[in-house]
Each structure stands twice: as C-alpha cells, then as structure tokens.
Design a protein around this nucleic acid. Structure first.
Lengths: 334, 334
DNA sequence: CGACTTCATGGTACCGATACCACCGGGTAT
DNA sequence: ATACCCGGTGGTATCGGTACCATGAAGTCG
C-alpha cells in the first residue's frame, strides 16, 4: 500500500480471534477440522480485518502452489477460448487456478514462458503447441510435473496429450468435398512456421490428392500473431488466378474460410454451386445464423474439461494420448 | 515429480558453483553486481542442473510477487484479446507477469476471483468491468494496490481507469446513422444484467432519440457467457417484425451486428440501401476483407499498453481517468 | 474403571528465497 | 602511512504460511 500499510497476516487474525495461527489456517483450509464455535470466531476476525490468505507463503510451506500453467498459441483468434473455459472451470472445482500466457505461435517465446511458468512451481503444465525447442523439452522433462499437450496428438507426446488427429481431420474435410462431387479442390494454408497442427491438416489434404485432379496448395503469410479474414480473401484471389476452374477450397481455419467466402461473394461467385468453401474449428461466425460455413467442429470445451480431469486425477500415465475426435459439419458453403 | 525427486534449489546451485546462495540470487536477479568469473560459474551450474528460480519463495521474502492480476469479462468473444496482449507485453518488459481470469460478466464470480487473485499478492489489479459487489469493493480498497478499470471511464473509478466513454460512443454511432439520412433507427442490445458498458452505449442511443422518429429498442438474452451471431439474427427478426419500416440497426456489439447482417442478406434485404447496420468493437470479421461492417473502432491494444505503462510507473494517481477515445468507421453496411 | 481412541488445539521447525549487515582486499585521498 | 571507500562476497534472520508432533479433554469399550 502506498502509505506503508502492510497486508494483514494470519498472525493478526489469530490474535484477533484469540486462537493460534495454525487454527486460523485450518479454519480457512479445512473448516471441518475446527469446532463450529472457533470457526465463527475466526470467520469474524477474517471479515473484520479483510484478511485474504497468502498463497505465496502457503505454496512455499506446503510445496503445493495450487496453480496450473497454460500456454496457448493465441487469444486473438478465439480458437482456444472454450478450452480455456473448460480448464478453468474444471481445475477451479479442484481448488487449482489457471495461469495463462500466450506464445504467439513462437517456440522461442514458448520456451521462455515455460521457464517463467516453472518459476511459479505449477502443479501441471498445459500446452496447445507440440513443437518445442530442445531447451524447452529439457525443462519440461526435468520439471517432473504432468505436461499435457492439447488440440493434437503428437507421437510421442512430451508426457500426455488430449486432442484429435489433425491429419485425419484434414483428410476428412477434403473427402467431404470429393464425396459431394468436387474434383478440382484447392487447399488454403498458412505460412506459420511452427504451427504443426496446421501443417498436419494440410498433410491430410495431400493424402487425398490422388483422388483429385491436381494438388493445388496456396499458403498465405500472417502478420505476427493474427491470421485474419483479409488473408483468406487474398488467398482466394491467388487460387482463382492460378487455377480459375477450382471447384472447392479447403481452408486451414475458419478465419481464412470466412475471408475467402466474403471474397467469393464480392466476386459474384455462386457458393456452393460454383465454388465450395470449408473452414476448420467451427467458431461462432461459422454458425448457421451467421456465415453457415461448412467446417470441422472441434469440441474445445470437452478438451479443456478432460484435461482438467486428468490433472486432478493425478498419476497421469506417461505416453497417454486421448482422442476426442472431430466432426465434419456440412452447412451452406458446400 | 512422480518418483520423489524434488525441485532443484538455489542451495544446490550454490554448492555446485562453489559460492554462497546469495551470490546465486544476485547472479540471476542483478548480474551486474557479480564478477564476470563468478557469473560464469553460476550460469554453468544453473544450466547443468536445469535450475529455475522459485518465484514463490522469492515473492515471500522480497514481498514483491511480480504478478499483476487481470479479470476480463470474457475470452470467448475476443474483445479483450488485444488489450491482454498489450498488457502482457508491456508488463513483461518490466518483469511483471499477468495472471488472467474470466468473470463471465458476473459480479459474484468477479468478487470471488478478486479474492483468489489477492491471495497471490499481486502488485496491481486490472478489471474490465466497473460493476463490483460491495464486498469486492471493500477488498479492492483494503488491498492497497493500484486497481485499473479498463474499457470504460466510471465516475468515480475504484482507483483509476483507462478507456473511453461508452455513452459517447453509443451516441456517435447513432449520430452517424442520422447524418447519413436515417430516421427510423433501432437499437439491438443485450440483456446482460451487469454489463454496464453495453448499457451506457444503449443510453447513448437514447440520448439521440429526440432526433429519431421513435425509440426502438430490442434486447436479446445471451446464453451464459456467449453472445453469438445467432442472437443478432434473432434480434433483427424481432425488430423487423415490430417495426417493418426500420432503416438502420445500431447493434451493441460486432457479434450481434454480424448475425443481423447475415440475417438481412438471407431475407434479401439491400444493405445498406434498404437497411443500415452497425456494430461495436471492430473485430476481425468487421474488416473490409470480410463483412465490411460499419462499426466503432476501439484501440484495445493501446488501452492495454497504457495500462501497463501506468502500472510500471508506480504512483498511480487516485481518481485518474484516461480517455483514449474511439473512432466511428464507416464501411459497407451504412 | 483404566486403556485407548478421537477431537480440537497449539508449539516449533521449516519451506526457499532475499534483506540487511558484516567482512575482506585493494585502490585512492590527504 | 592512515583513513576511507567500494566492489565482491557471505552469514543470518526473516517473509507468512503449513507439516509434524504433542497436548489435554471428552468419549468408547470390555
């Protein structure tokens, strides 16, 4: 505080309530171990003094920080928002707090953040990327805490993973285009060096290229951090210029697909008659009420919840890979 | 760690490097106070052992947590994403880490999170809401740390605020509709009880109703947490049913506006000839490359950066309200 | 009725870092 | 030469809780 006042301590509360500080600790952490009368006294003292338990001290002495670290690639695109909510809610129920940071899809940033996170001695770490620097890898190994990689199923995972197969998903949405009669199918990807998930989805497309007229891949380069709809519009332009007879565009993300879709409209193309477009992620704007975008639905909330469950259960088996799958959702653009 | 291993401590590093632990502390925190030779020895030991400084212990003994708490209303709508990035980057440069949590627009949740946050003894607190429970208010007052409210300019703020006048913004976008010749202007709002910002924007609309044919307000009710485009579509339906001759719809958020816009297209309405639509926030999808939505642009990044600056400067003057303004952006929907 | 258990509570050591002060050696000022 | 300063280093106390063990009172059982 500005004027030299200090935080109230447990000792102050104990004195006020006329009990030992250990009793205050118990009253706040395990109320069942304290008699109702004492509990009332302590509660009163806590309220009067506006005391808030100091977790930094608690963490030190109990060697349990009650914190779980989470490193997500981005918050700007709300891909991971539902997952974060699932994690927060799940962990909160178990008395754990989520500490969040963003890596901007950069392994160096991730490495430095892992180190920062470990400084808070978290009880587990959650990552939404699967490409780590060797240094980061070493830190994770040595930390000896559960590490969960989400939204993908790397083989092998650093420790354990909850997600789905991006390659399968990329193949599935491409197959959907083929099954609905398209043969000249293009893929609109992203030059984001370390986004291995996106690369796997592209690989899924490539896997099916044998059934296509031709391999048609265009990748746009995002400005640091954000891959917005403008890139989708731009990418569609490139595709149509290079292959004017394209019948379908599989986009690596909903954001790109939205941009491409709007651009197609602007050009007066008939979607889906003339050109089909698909996205990935099933974000809000893809809903039938908005763009009605054909896309791959990922249950981000479930991923977050399951991750929280696994962390709370303790004893996370090394090498575990839990596949929560995905769903191809056909809407108005295919 | 699973097999009983413990975290490496500063003592281990000191022993390894053949120095006292205080020297290790200095080598890591203030390298300039240690001789180059010693520094190298310590660095080597740190690397060999994979040591990461324990901030929980550091926080306790130095009484400085190097953490700033941030409570945002939502992550699902990426409104605050840029602000968070600005905060993270700005604070990071000053050696502070952001601890993030979401309130879901609920003051009770906020109150409980404030308490949780204070448990980590943050050096400052950032809030994106300005409606707090009395208990939360008392906690904030007593905490004696800087408290910054963002995205609004409450009068008086709990401590200080960085943002803009939502009421002015609501009035400005309504005025834009009037200036472009519309008189039968409706407002599409949100029944989100504690979202005072949204209510102020609506108030801005009401302020100008004298110049309008009629006050036309419809509010839709979000499912917990998320106000998606489906609500916008639904809301437009209600408006057009009640007042079929409506010429413009001012929406309280981009998300609603997007839904309304898509619904208008589906109904075959000419936008903006027959019906103008505006949003609020200028999110990605509002860009010219995507929906080209007329909206109010808020520089969330600047808000975050400025907040970080103020926190790092220390000595945050009580009652400060910094107005970073907004911009009405006319695009293709008005 | 005595031994044993359970419950509520307190004392003391300790978690892993940093603050504070002390110390040492060598250079500079007087 | 003595006094003083200063960069580099270490010892010890301390931050605010919790673990662990001990204590005393009340209840249980044969």
């Amino acid at each position: 505080m500005a004027d030299g006042r200090k935080w109230v301590t447990m000792g102050d509360v104990a004195a006020r309530a006329g009990v030992g500080k250990i009793t205050v600790s118990r009253a706040l952490r395990t109320p069942s171990k304290v008699s109702p009368a004492t509990l009332r006294k302590v509660q009163a003292a806590v309220d009067e003094l506006g005391y808030v338990l100091d977790e930094t001290a608690g963490a030190l002495s109990s060697q349990r920080s009650r914190v779980v670290g989470a490193l997500v690639s981005t918050l700007e695109e709300p891909v991971f928002a539902a997952t974060i909510r699932g994690l927060t809610e799940g962990l909160g129920a178990g008395g754990l707090q989520l500490m969040l940071a963003t890596t901007q899809y950069d392994p160096e940033t991730e490495a430095s953040l892992i180190s920062t996170m470990l400084g808070r001695r978290p009880e587990a770490l959650v990552l939404t990327s699967d490409r780590h620097t060797p240094a980061a890898h070493a830190l994770l190994e040595r930390a000896g805490i559960p590490v969960l990689e989400l939204w993908g199923l790397p083989n092998p995972p650093v420790h354990a993973a909850v997600g789905f197969f991006n390659r399968e998903a990329g193949a599935a949405i491409t197959r959907h285009m083929i099954e609905t009669g398209r043969r000249r199918v293009a893929f609109l990807g992203l030059n984001r060096e370390h986004d291995t998930r996106a690369q796997l989805r592209r690989q899924g497309y490539v896997d099916l290229c044998g059934q296509l007229a031709e391999e048609r891949i265009v990748a746009v380069t995002p400005r640091p951090g954000v891959a917005g709809p403008d890139l989708g519009a731009q990418g569609l332009g490139v595709i149509l210029q290079r292959w004017p007879d394209t019948e379908a565009v599989v986009c690596v993300s909903d954001m790109l697909a939205s941009g491409a879709l709007c651009e197609a409209w602007r050009r007066g193309l008939d979607v889906p008659g003339q050109l089909a477009i698909s996205g990935f992620g099933d974000f809000d704007m893809a809903s039938p009420a908005a763009l009605a975008l054909t896309t791959v639905h990922i249950d981000g909330l479930a991923i977050g919840r399951r991750a929280a469950e696994l962390i709370l259960a303790g004893e996370l088996p090394k090498g575990l890979r839990e596949n929560l799958g995905f769903t191809v959702v056909r809407r108005a653009t295919s």
